[in-house]
């Protein structure tokens, strides 16, 4: 419902923007004056940080557009009908829906949140969210290109899609019958997510769009900061020492995928560069990374209740480990 503030509060509230604007200007001036890029580590950090965000922001916005469209223009009865689908069908259907949604992990989080809030079974929404970044056509194509010309191309493409779908459905199954209220963190008033009766659909659409964008954007900035710092200060060669040690090498590359926070549309090229590792660890990197990484840890913790991130790490980790060990036995 609309809440009306007294006129004095309304005009006075713009004052809250002043310290923020002043802080930003001071930051810009400081960067100009001190040119921290002379310190090469800082330059490296800022480059990785900005490029992660420049690439992710359009996708976050696309996710927010889809999410706002769902909120404003898809009638509730569609979700009621979807929720009536037979239970055993819901998770696979949600997983395969990811095939048709060519947005990587940043975009699928706001959409899943909206779907769950609108009454789709939360388990199905979560399955969709996790499956989309692994199963979408762009990701499948880039995986094939990265491994083209090697014997392992089909193992990687099919293994990634298969294990990704399996892991996403497993998380959905563990989440099970939890209600949306149980699973989603409430966003507080500042998120502007309340409806004004009678407001035009256009205004409502842009309201939800901005709300989702700023909500996700905050966590994305935090996640990109941590990921860029890790990329800058942790040399990738430390992984080399465990290459060839069974099982430990799987854990090592899953850990690396977590630290690097690559977009699922490009991570196959990086995975293919770890030649000292076998196909098992490379596959583990490609299955685990799009579902669990530094920036997603922030996005998930802002979107879902406590414990959800732990569930995703444990379930996706277990499926990835078991699956890649099996692939190593069969294909290796």
């Amino acid at each position: 419902m609309a809440h009306t503030a007294p006129a004095s509060v309304r005009t006075g509230s713009l004052g809250n923007a002043l310290p923020v604007a002043a802080g930003l200007l001071a930051l810009g001036a400081a960067l100009r004056l001190f040119e921290p890029t002379r310190i090469t580590g800082v330059q490296n950090f800022l480059l990785v940080f900005s490029s992660l965000l420049i690439e992710a922001v359009p996708f976050i916005l696309l996710g927010a557009v889809v999410s706002a469209l769902i909120e404003v223009f898809v009638p509730p009865r569609v979700f009621e009908r979807l929720a009536r689908l037979p239970g055993p069908l819901q998770l696979p259907a949600a997983g395969f829906a990811g095939l048709a949604f060519p947005v990587c992990e940043c975009g699928s989080v706001p959409v899943a949140r909206r779907l769950a809030a609108k009454g789709l079974a939360p388990s199905a929404a979560v399955t969709f969210m996790l499956a989309a970044p692994v199963l979408n056509p762009i990701v499948i194509a880039s995986t094939a290109v990265a491994y083209r010309g090697r014997g392992a191309m089909w193992t990687m493409v099919l293994g990634r899609a298969g294990l990704g779908l399996l892991a996403a459905m497993a998380v959905g199954w563990v989440v099970g019958g939890r209600s949306a209220g149980d699973l989603l963190r409430s966003r507080g008033v500042e998120a502007d997510d309340h409806d004004h009766d009678g407001e035009s659909r256009g205004a409502a659409f842009f309201g939800h769009l901005a709300g989702d964008f700023f909500f996700m954007g905050r966590y994305l900035v935090l996640g990109a900061t941590v990921a860029a710092a890790l990329q800058t200060f942790v040399p990738q060669s430390i992984m080399g020492s465990v290459a060839g040690t069974p099982f430990v090498d799987l854990i090592a590359l899953m850990g690396l995928a977590f630290l690097l926070s690559l977009c699922s549309e490009s991570d196959a090229f990086v995975a293919a560069s770890f030649v000292q590792f076998g196909i098992g660890p490379q596959l583990a990197f490609l299955v685990f990374g799009p579902m669990v990484d530094t920036k997603l840890a922030f996005l998930y913790s802002g979107t879902f209740t406590k414990g959800f991130f732990r569930t995703v790490v444990l379930v996706v980790g277990a499926v990835t480990l078991a699956g890649t060990l099996w692939v190593e036995v069969v294909a290796g």
């Binding site: 490029s51 992660l52 690439e55 990086v270």
Partner: peptide, 9 residues
């Protein structure tokens, strides 16, 4: 760079 600078090799 295949996507963004974060994946540079």
């Amino acid at each position: 760079v295949s996507c963004c600078v974060a994946d540079a090799l």
